[in-house]
Simulated scan of single mutants.
Amino acid sequence: MNTEPEQVSLNDLAGLPSMATLVLTVNNRHARRILADLSAMLDAQRQVMALPDIMPVSAWLRQAGDQWSFASDNGLAAHTVDAFGALSLWRQVIIEAETDHALLDVGNAASLAQEADRLLSEWQLEVPPALQTDEYRRFMVWRKAYRQRLHDMDAEDGVLGFERVYQAIVDGKLHFDFQNLVLVGFNEYSPRLRGVIDALRAQGVAIFALQPSQVDAAQVERVQAADPDTEWRLAARWAQSCLRANPEGRYAIVAARLENDVALAHRVLREALGADGTAPAVPYNIAVARPLADWPLVRAALCWLRVLRAFLLHGRCEPSLAGAALLSGGCAAHVVEAPAGEQMWLT
């Protein structure tokens, strides 16, 4: 039996009954794109269109969790822990579990553990005992302690909430009003998502997948550069020639390591697309940003929150936390005491 979703076009999607159709996308960007593509189909003959619900799968799972919370046997926890609170709890659990072992970066370990927990749940992974490493076994100790702490708090995080909703759908206890489900942007389906799809199909929901809109390249050319710097300069020169020839055109440079090369990208694009004696500057956009926690003011706020949390929970604060907060600034006396602080740390 073929369980792969039936492929449909954008016109087929527009023809489905909107009130009985749900469109699930892999992320927000795909949701906005589908909405824009459907809106572009409007013309003089068709000025109004009823749109189906279009949302990322993560948002739909949260919505399904809200719906399931009204059931009598929902097993809902009394409290919900957001991503920031979950990360803080991971840090606390890891510190308590590793009292005999000093970790160089507890924050990074907590972040990696949080992501590993999500992946284990999403892909329903089980590592055979013969393949388990020491790192994996330590992580499982952290995970067990983390989930026990949530249980003691009568709380759940996003992963446990999704697991609860998933089980309710698979068990046939959670039903929905739509009769058509259209999936957009998924290259593959995780076991958890496939379980949801199979359960919805068993409930009589028709499952479709939107055909990706692909445009065949008119010309393909391979250019090999000696190093990353030369590669970026060649790409910037190509963008310059295209935009000078057609200022209204839209062109893209797709980089695999843009987060690491963003400073280099800004420099070479500014040089190539800036104003010169013959042409004005050409506007461009680089769609990447450093993490919010890397900005000085946000980093300072997070440091002071850790200090306040330590005093609230333990009535005291470790010198490392207080030192990081004082160095980050962001407090009332920062401007006045900054010179003295610099002298103190230099001596």
Rank of each mutant, 00 (worst) to 15 (best):
M1L: 13
E4C: 03
S9Y: 04
L10S: 03
G15H: 06
T21S: 10
T21E: 14
T21F: 10
L22M: 14
N28P: 01
H30L: 05
A31V: 06
L35S: 11
S39R: 13
A40C: 03
M41N: 01
A44V: 12
Q47H: 09
A50F: 07
A50L: 09
P52R: 11
P52L: 08
D53E: 15
V57M: 12
W60H: 03
L61N: 05
A64G: 03
D66H: 00
S69M: 05
T80H: 10
A83C: 04
W90H: 12
V93A: 11
V93F: 08
I94R: 06
H101W: 08
L104H: 07
A110F: 13
S111I: 04
A113P: 05
D117F: 04
D117W: 02
W123K: 00
L125G: 08
E126T: 13
E126G: 07
P128Q: 05
P128D: 04
P129H: 10
A130H: 11
L131D: 11
Q132G: 06
Q132K: 14
E135T: 13
E135F: 07
R138E: 03
V141W: 04
R143N: 13
Q148V: 07
Q148C: 07
H151T: 13
D152R: 09
D154A: 12
A155T: 08
A155G: 10
A155E: 10
A155D: 13
A155R: 12
V159I: 15
F162T: 03
F162Q: 09
R164N: 05
V165L: 04
Y166L: 14
D177F: 00
N180M: 01
N180D: 15
L183T: 05
L183F: 14
G185P: 05
F186A: 05
N187D: 15
Y189F: 15
P191E: 11
P191Y: 02
R192E: 03
V196E: 10
D198Y: 02
A199F: 09
A202Q: 14
G204S: 04
G204P: 01
I207Q: 02
Q211M: 09
S213G: 13
V215D: 10
V215E: 12
A218D: 11
Q219N: 11
E221I: 01
E221N: 06
A225R: 11
A226H: 08
P228M: 05
P228N: 06
D229L: 08
A235P: 01
A239T: 10
Q240K: 02
L243S: 15
A245F: 02
R250T: 12
R250L: 13
A252M: 12
V254N: 11
A256I: 04
D261Y: 02
V262L: 09
A263N: 11
L264S: 08
A265I: 00
E271I: 02
D276H: 09
T278E: 15
Y284D: 01
I286D: 01
A289I: 06
P291H: 14
R299S: 13
A301E: 11
L302V: 13
C303R: 15
C303K: 12
L305D: 12
L305G: 02
R309A: 11
R309E: 15
F311A: 08
R316K: 07
P319Q: 15
P319M: 10
S320Y: 08
S320P: 01
G330E: 10
C331Q: 14
A333P: 01
E337P: 00
A338W: 10
M344N: 06
L346E: 09
T347G: 15
